[in-house]
Each structure stands twice: as structure tokens, then as C-alpha cells.
Write a protein that binds this DNA or RNA. Structure first.
Lengths: 337, 337
DNA sequence: TTTATTTACTTAACCGATTAAGTAAATAAA
DNA sequence: TTTATTTACTTAATCGGTTAAGTAAATAAA
């Protein structure tokens, strides 16, 4: 409906459309006087270049995409905050896709994106399945930065010091007196999950604790399933410490302990990877390994824009440090925090 | 780089590009035999139509935008989940913009979107400022559905029964014995904020409680400011009940009470509008008015797609019902929930 | 003074799909 | 059998910018 085009501007100023286009792109083919007139007219008419037209010609969309497993999760939500900030700063638009941890959905998105002329992609991969061919296909076709959940073939990524964090968490429990430390594992097959598990196992060894397979619980995205496994763990194996590799499993622990009348931290101490901002308000407050989610998002986006700017950019992947925040769930002497 | 275009297909099959285009769009200008050949070739080559080209011609992008105040918030995150589901179902792409409650930023986004050929917009408006001219400008230019945070000029919206919910919350506190009920207000100037306050005031009246201006706290997005106001409230006015109109103010209450040694629910009972899924794990667990965030997102998106499909759609705005979930923060007889 | 270069434009092709208008052959109606 | 209509295509214009190639005038170099 009557949108202002470059032709309107050209006719009004009695110049060619090429002149307008070049002026708006600040080409040094155009005199300052003309540029001034073009800019002023464009501004006064609130001219907005049609992104389809320039996109078609330039094969650039000023749009990046982000694929996440989910958004109703503090870690990812904060990461998006960081990503959005950088994207806005650079004048880019942000498309969002939620895989809900289905690699099939993820593959569908990626195929779509490859034909969609997005300029770049930020992704935290879904963890179901073991088929990463859709991720391999990105290679060389779409500048991509992986964050948090990477996979072995990912070239550029921003991750956490997951091994060290899990190591510290387990060691912390040991120092709090725990000798039967359970590990709630998830994201097996992905680097994150693997690193966290390895960190835990390494800490066990360094603390001189034996490895007991029944203390390592392989969780999934099936809530009922996880619930059943946790009940079994708490009723029969009865650990005195739990390292949860994701937030939602920690919440499940709380509920399970409530149901079974198991006291935290007296009977069992809990530490969890988590970005829950109300962790300090929980009953009892939860000891967390908190990731710098916002900064991870910012760094990943910043890295992507560097790649977009210098296509031959020799980027280096980054490792961000998580923080162990000790609270009541790992402390017998309960006091307000 | 070597993307498959409609021309490749045309040359391979020895037909015109028009034939390919029509075949792919299932035009009944094309024989079934030809369609079959075109479809098969397109599939085998994984042909992906260039969205810029078709967008330029059709003025349609198969993309909708969502503008939110923030994303690291359970309500909005879940709403996005609902929106995303519908968008995906319809084969649309989703652009996301975070206003961080700045109407200036919001105006910038909207101006950008008007020139960007997005097909539709879902928005929950920012609440700073009182200038809604940028929202008025949308009229007739971009199909839009407002959700949760609407403004007086919004034609289509999905909202909550905010008046009733606030009424119920206040009444619940009254029934729990509270006689000095404070209301933590925010979002004044927006319908949501106004409705919630009115609901509270109406309940006060119906309960026969006098209106005390010093019990209504006008909060802002400035955390320090809110903190100071809350401290003052708790130390000098000393209410025995608090209705918090947003989640983050309830969290602030918890912290403030912790600091001042005020016991919840013994000294003060709290109920808050909140979509925090760990509300039941807080210390004490928090009585909430929980909005059907996911469904609100779904309904808003569904409504938008109806408008997109039938441009003369006589849409009706919707009101969704929130739920009062009673927990320990409004109960003296504390027990596990 | 003549030639080379720079400046500030214009012309026209182009990106890749869509679609109005046109056409030849096949089929149906008169 | 002749005319009208339908079928299944093709041709070419178009969407709105971008850009390679061209050009006339102004300025600089020889």
C-alpha cells in the first residue's frame, strides 16, 4: 500500500534510481551535496528500503537465526537476552526456532534455514538421537556458532568449563561429608553431558571414592521415567549427596525428597547446574553451579558477527567459567542466605 | 553458492520457469503429469525457493514478529512457546524483539517492521512512558494481536481476567485474616496494571476494608527504587498481607522479609501474580495467581493467523482465566505442599 | 595546449520467483 | 462441420533494489 520506493525518491529529486541507491549506501560515487538531499528526503518520507529487493540482489538478509532446545529455561532465556543485545547493536534481526530436543525438528529447521538466506546461525543442539548429519551439512554453507550444547564436529563454539564445574561440585559434596554421591546424568552423547559426567568421575577418584554404577542415573526428557528412576534411587540406593547436571532434575529431586520425607541437606545434599534466579529462595536454598548464560549468548553472537565480517576469520572457540554458589542444600548448619 | 533455482529445474525438464513455478504452487494450469515430474525433480535436488524472490513479488514473507518486554520471565517464555508452536504448525517463521520495557526501543522495532514486510505482529507492550503513537501507527498497516499487556487503542487482544484475579487474591488474603493488605502495583497506564489495581480496590471495598493510600506501592522497573519502597513499607506501614502484581516484586518481598526477619506467612501473607514453576519449592511455597501463559501465546497466534487468512475477519478479543493456587505463603498452618 | 584522470552521474542488466497475457492443440458444443 | 471452450503450456513484464559498464564534464598532468 503506497510504500515509498527508491523510484519515488529518484523522481522527486530528478535523478536516477542508481544515484539514490548509491547515495543511501554512502558510495563515494556520489557528491556530498546529492547525498545530503537524498538523505534528507528519505528521512522526511520515512523511506524504508525493501529488504526483499536488496536481499535478492545481495544475498544478505541482516538476519540471524537461533535454534534452541527450549525457551522456558533460565539458561536459554538469558542466553537469548545476550544474543539479542548484540544482534540489535549490529542492526540484525533475530529468528527463533525451538527444537524441543527433537533432532528431527532441528534438521527440518536447518534445511529450511539453508534455503532462507539467513546470514548466520547460533545453535545449542538438541540431544535426542545420535544423528548429526544435519549439523554436518551446515559446514561451509552457513556461518554457525554453537553454544553450550555443541557436538564433536562443531568448529566454533562457546562452552562452559563443564568438566571442572562438575569436578568442583562433587568435591564440594565430598568436603561436606558425602561419601555416596549420585550423579544425575543427561545429555549423554553431547560434549556437555559427557564432560560433566567425566568431571564427576574424576573427582570421585581424586577423593578416593569408589565408582558405583548404580549411583549414576541416566536421565532422559521423559519426566515420568526420570521420576521413577529418582524414586528408586532415593528409596533403595540412598545417596547422601546428589550432583544434578540440569536444573529440572534438581527440582524433581526436591519434589521426590518432599514426598519421601527425606530432609535436604540433613539426609541428602544437593548441588545442581542451574541458572534459576530464585535458587536462593528455595526451601532449602539450592547450591548451584551457575553458568554465565547472558555472557555466553553475547560471546557466541559476537563471535558469529566476527565471522560474518571477516569471512576468513580464524576464530577461536571459547570456554566460559561457571560459578559454584554454596547455599543451604549442601550445608547442615542451616541459616538464612 | 550454486543454489538450485527455478531456472535449473526448467532447463532440466525443458519447460519454462513459469511452468515450474505454477507446478510448485499446484496451479491447475499445469497437467498432473508435469506436476509430478517437477515435484520429483525439486525433491531430489532439494530445491528451496528463494524467499526473497517470492517475497518481493508477493509481498508476503511467511514471517511473523513478536515484541516482548523481556524473555527471561516465565510468563513471556511460555507465551513464546505457545506462539512458536502455532507458527511452526502454519509454516511461519518467528522474529523476536525485546523492548526491555523501553517504548522508544519498541517504536524503533515497529518502524523497522513496517518496512520489513513481516506478515503479522504479536506484541505485549512496554510500560514505560505514555506515548503510544507508534502503536497507533500500526493500524491498518500490519495485522497485529496484543497479548497480556495491551493498550487502550488495541483492537485485537488476548488478555487475562486481571480484575477478577486481583479481586480474588485480595479476598483470599482477607479470608486468611489479613486486614492491612498492601498492593504492589506496576504497569500503571496499561490496562493490565489498571485492572489489577481496580480489582484489588474493589475487593477491599466489598470486604469492608478502608482504602489506605500508603498501602498501595507504585513500583517501577528500577530495582533499587522498589527495594527502598518495600523496606519502607515493611518497616513502617507493616501490612499483614501483600498482593504483588508481578513475580519479581514477590521475590523482592521474600528477600526483604528475610533481611528484616519478618516471617511469611506468620507476620505477613503473600500472594503474587506469577508463572514461576518453582513457586511450590520456595521457602515458603508461594501462593500464586497463575496465568495460562502457554495458552495465551497459542490463542494470540491463532487469532493472528485467522486475521491473516481472512483479512476481513471479524475477530473477537479473548479473555483467559487465571488460576489462584493456594500455598504456604498465605497459610498459617504450614505443611508440605 | 593536448591528453589522462577523476568526478558525478546514467543506463541497463540482474537477483529469482510470480503472474497477466498470449497461443497452439485438443476437446466440446452448436 | 464449424465455432467455442478448455487444456497446457510459453512469453515477457514485474517486484525494488544493486551494480557493472558507460559517459559527459571538470580537473590534473604532460
Amino acid at each position: 500500500m503506497g510504500e515509498i520506493t527508491i523510484r519515488h525518491l529518484a523522481e522527486t529529486l530528478n535523478v536516477s534510481t542508481a544515484t539514490i541507491s548509491k547515495a543511501l549506501n554512502d558510495s563515494h560515487d556520489i557528491s556530498d551535496a546529492t547525498k545530503g538531499r537524498v538523505f534528507e528526503l528519505a528521512r522526511s518520507l520515512n523511506y524504508r528500503p525493501n529488504p526483499f529487493a536488496s536481499g535478492l540482489r545481495k544475498h544478505k538478509s541482516k538476519t540471524i537465526a537461533v535454534i534452541l532446545p527450549e525457551i522456558a529455561d533460565n539458561f536459554f532465556a538469558q542466553a537469548v537476552n545476550g544474543i539479542e543485545e548484540i544482534a540489535r547493536e549490529k542492526g540484525y534481526h533475530l529468528l527463533i526456532y525451538l527444537s524441543h530436543d527433537s533432532s528431527e525438528t532441528e534438521a527440518f529447521f536447518i534445511n529450511d534455514l539453508l534455503g532462507r538466506c539467513v546470514d548466520g546461525l547460533l545453535i545449542s543442539v538438541s540431544f535426542d538421537g545420535i544423528d548429526f548429519t544435519h549439523l554436518d551439512e551446515i559446514q561451509g554453507k552457513l556461518p554457525t556458532v554453537f553454544f553450550d550444547r555443541t557436538y564433536s564436529g562443531s568448529l566454533l563454539h562457546v562452552t562452559n568449563n563443564d568438566f571442572e564445574s562438575a569436578y568442583q561440585a562433587t568435591k564440594h559434596l565430598y568436603e561436606c561429608g558425602c561419601r555416596q554421591i549420585s550423579f544425575l546424568s543427561i545429555l549423554q552423547g553431547l560434549e556437555v553431558g559427557n564432560q560433566r559426567l567425566q568431571g564427576h568421575l574424576c573427582a570421585l577418584q581424586d577423593c578416593g571414592l569408589p565408582f558405583n554404577p548404580s549411583l549414576v542415573i541416566n536421565c532422559s526428557n521423559n519426566k515420568e521415567d526420570n521420576e521413577a528412576k529418582l524414586y528408586h534411587l532415593m528409596k533403595t540406593v540412598k545417596p547422601d549427596g546428589i550432583v544434578s547436571s540440569v536444573e529440572k532434575l534438581a527440582k524433581l529431586c526436591y519434589h521426590t525428597c518432599n514426598d519421601l520425607g527425606i530432609a535436604i541437606p540433613e539426609d541428602v545434599k544437593i548441588v545442581s547446574f542451574s541458572n534459576l534466579d530464585s535458587a536462593s529462595l528455595l526451601n532449602p536454598s539450592l547450591t548451584t553451579i551457575t553458568q554465565p548464560a547472558y555472557d555466553i549468548g553475547k560471546q557466541a553472537a559476537t563471535m558469529l558477527f566476527k565471522v560474518l565480517k571477516y569471512s576468513n576469520y580464524e576464530a577461536e572457540s571459547m570456554v566460559m567459567n561457571s560459578e559454584l554458589i554454596k547455599r543451604q542444600s549442601t550445608n547442615v548448619s542451616v541459616s538464612s542466605t
